[in-house]
Nucleic acid binder design. Structure first.
Length: 376
RNA sequence: GGGGAGAUUCCAGAGCGGUCAAAUGGGGCAGACUGUAAAUCUGUUGGCUAAGCCUUCGGAGGUUCGAAUCCUCCUCUCCCCA
């Protein structure tokens, strides 16, 4: 994996770059659709590649390990072969599940004991296993095993958790270095900064993570309920410490506004379930603001879903029709909304990239932020 | 023609003397969702000058301090037998 910066904004930390991988180039900043179980929910492969124009998608170690199981994915020849996605894949380590499935796991220095949310069976993840599993999945970018702390989080716990994440990172790196790429093409490991909302912890964590000198770095433990301003503050702080010549990945973020603000702070990569999950639940993101397509007000609105949208679905269906699909419980509704939202997210980030390259990012961002967040 | 069951708030359907503006489900309306246990979850759903009041449980009368609940008649539905 290689990262080259093509342009940097003069009045901001935003930059435009290219990540090269064994499955093709990724132009940054980039939004990566989340495909937890080996599928970006409700979106067909062809739509994802040709219409949405996703450059890279996510998979999830914990979910794929439980189902279908790593033996199946290995037999298939890796996740790319299994699900048919030929562009890059990044896998999350399961660190987020340590947080979101907190009720059914126990953390020790050695690793995490957890119960399957599917059948209750007992399992254990060590940092070493998490690397092995991601190798076997065949992810182009592998994430270190971390503990994603909740918000709010006592400082003492945040510190203890951060130390643990760092210890696990050493083991992840060692395991990563002592194992080979599973399918011939290169695999990269990204470590993850933790430290909750505490500036000193985040500083320490960012410096520690940077010292491992991996090919990219991630910021975790944000967008877990803290105020947006707090997230920006920590993101800015960490971005300033992480090396500029490596991609910075802000995990789990976020809303369109969150992404523009964080690009401004120097973030290169984003992923979030929002465009797909909220889309399935009837929320549409547009340049003019946010639409709840289930609302009665769209009942007789026969205008296109998004006049300014760049996706096939935007000009093929009306708001009234999409509302009807949701009202009727038709599965096409969530599909259309997911495609629209993903295409919107990716187009927005592409526009941001264009603005970075031509030097007008900051003012463009400031002009758009308010509109993007308003409700229609 | 004979016998039986029933009519409840948008729908279905509980309630069978006061704690009932009336369970529950559906539908409607609105909200939430940020490295996905989510095609999920939450709220709300008679009116108003709104911690109170008013009008509602097929219609009309009656019993009672008090009726969706008991009685009488009427109207209408459904089922069974001829």
């Amino acid at each position: 994996m290689n990262f080259t910066i093509e342009a940097s904004a003069a009045d901001s930390s935003a930059r435009a770059g290219v990540i090269t991988t064994g499955h093709g180039d990724i132009y940054t900043p980039v939004f990566m659709p989340v495909g937890t179980a080996g599928t970006v929910k409700a979106v067909h492969l062809r739509d994802l590649a040709d219409d949405v124009k996703a450059q890279i998608i996510l998979g999830n170690t914990y979910h794929l390990y439980l189902r279908p199981g790593i033996d199946i994915i290995s037999s298939a020849g890796g996740l790319h072969r299994f699900n048919g996605w030929e562009r890059p894949i990044l896998t999350d380590s399961g660190g987020y599940q340590v947080y979101s499935l907190a009720a059914s796991r126990k953390i020790t220095t050695e690793g995490v004991k957890f119960r399957s949310h599917i059948d209750g069976s007992a399992h254990f993840f060590s940092p070493e296993q998490v690397i092995d599993i991601q190798r076997a999945i065949g992810a182009d970018i592998i994430m270190a095993f971390d503990e994603c702390t909740p918000y709010p989080c006592e400082k003492s716990y945040a510190k203890q958790s951060m130390v643990l994440t760092h210890q696990w990172l050493s083991r992840c790196v060692e395991q990563f270095r002592s194992t080979d790429n599973a399918y011939g093409y290169p695999q990269s490991l990204f470590p993850i900064v933790q430290g909750s909302v505490y500036r000193d912890l985040r500083t320490e964590s960012a410096e520690t993570i940077a010292s491992f000198d991996m090919q990219g770095n991630a910021i975790g433990g944000l967008s877990v309920g803290e105020p947006a301003e707090m997230m920006y503050e920590i993101t800015g702080l960490v971005c300033d410490i992480l090396p500029a010549d490596k991609p910075r990945y802000l995990m789990g973020v976020g809303t369109p506004v969150n992404m523009l603000e964080c690009i401004d702070l120097g973030v290169d990569m984003f992923d979030c379930v929002m465009p797909t999950r909220n889309g399935r639940n009837g929320m549409l993101f547009t340049r003019e603001g946010i639409i709840n397509i289930k609302n009665e007000k769209w009942k007789n609105d026969f205008s296109h879903i998004d006049e300014m949208g760049g996706s096939f679905v935007d000009h093929s269906y009306s708001k009234a029709y999409l509302r009807h699909l949701f009202t009727a419980g038709e599965m096409l509704g969530p599909m259309i909304a997911s495609i629209h939202n993903l295409a919107f997210y990716i187009r927005l980030i592409n526009d941001a990239r264009e603005r970075i390259v031509n030097g007008s990012f900051k003012s463009w961002k400031n002009n758009n932020v308010k509109k993007l967040a308003q409700r229609l």
